[in-house]
């Protein structure tokens, strides 16, 4: 958090000694500045909602893709592998455009901007989540499966009570990384008109003609958001570790 404060401080200093900056557009002490600032911050809601919804879906889908990838049946592995390779190869921006403009034509359903964004981000991320889960599950020693087998646990129970709880502890840093990545990639959904942080900033720039200040605020918004997420993930890691040690 202190890094954000330092950045803010530096910027304020710089602004004082250069006539390039015009912080008045977002000066909360003036009426117009306060309105603008509030407008920029109002994008936070959709950025967070979009990212959290998308990652929740992609974690589940990713796990469902990873499990057949670890099966002993070859066709199952091929299906999983193909999904990962194909989805991973599509750029997120392309996927957003395809889902928003292409998918309704294909399926006959109308998709809101929000859900188009969620689907595109979740789809794209699920391939990466699948790889993370695969690595995590493969890192668990064979003896754990054998012990579960010898106390008659079913496959589902073995995964749920023995393998996944251990795998998730190990992949937590990687999952945190993906959440940060998703928060940043959600800015791409602005191209289809999603009213999130980046879109709000773009709109304000058009009316105020102060891109430097407005985009600087945008940078800070993402910075603060992501520092909070990082702190949250670290807290979770610590808590899960102390669970095992205490």
């Amino acid at each position: 958090m202190y890094r954000a404060t330092i950045c803010l401080l530096m910027l304020t200093l710089v602004s004082g000694c250069s006539d390039q900056w015009g912080w008045y557009v977002v000066d909360p002490t003036t009426k117009n500045g306060a309105v603008n600032l509030q407008f920029l911050l109002s994008g936070l809601y959709y950025t967070v909602l979009l990212s959290v919804t998308a990652i929740s879906i992609s974690v589940v889908v990713g796990l469902l893709i990873a499990l057949p990838g670890l099966s002993s049946s070859r066709p199952m592995r091929v299906v999983s592998r193909t999904y990962v390779e194909v989805v991973r190869a599509v750029p997120i921006l392309v996927l957003i455009l395809w889902v928003y403009y292409g998918l309704p034509q294909l399926s006959g359903l109308t998709i809101t901007v929000f859900w188009a964004g969620v689907i595109a981000l979740a789809l794209s991320d699920s391939a990466f989540e699948a790889e993370i889960f695969r690595a995590g599950i493969q890192s668990i020693a064979k003896g754990q499966y054998e012990a579960a087998h010898s106390i008659s646990l079913s496959y589902a129970d073995t995964m749920r009570f023995v393998i996944l709880p251990q795998a998730i502890r190990r992949i937590l840093p990687a999952l945190g990384n993906q959440l940060v990545y998703m928060l940043k990639m959600s800015s791409l959904v602005s191209v289809i008109g999603m009213q999130e942080l980046t879109r709000k900033a773009n709109e304000l720039v058009v009316s105020e003609y102060r891109p430097l200040e407005i985009y600087t605020i945008l940078v800070l918004e993402y910075l603060v958001l992501i520092l909070i997420v990082s702190a949250g993930v670290r807290w979770l890691e610590r808590r899960m570790q102390s669970d095992e040690r205490n």
Partner: peptide, 22 residues
Amino acid sequence: QFNLFPHLTVIENLMLGPVRAR
């Protein structure tokens, strides 16, 4: 190598089979 479940306490290690399988 014992193969105990490291994320569960001793009693939870023992209870898992009886609760889930039995």
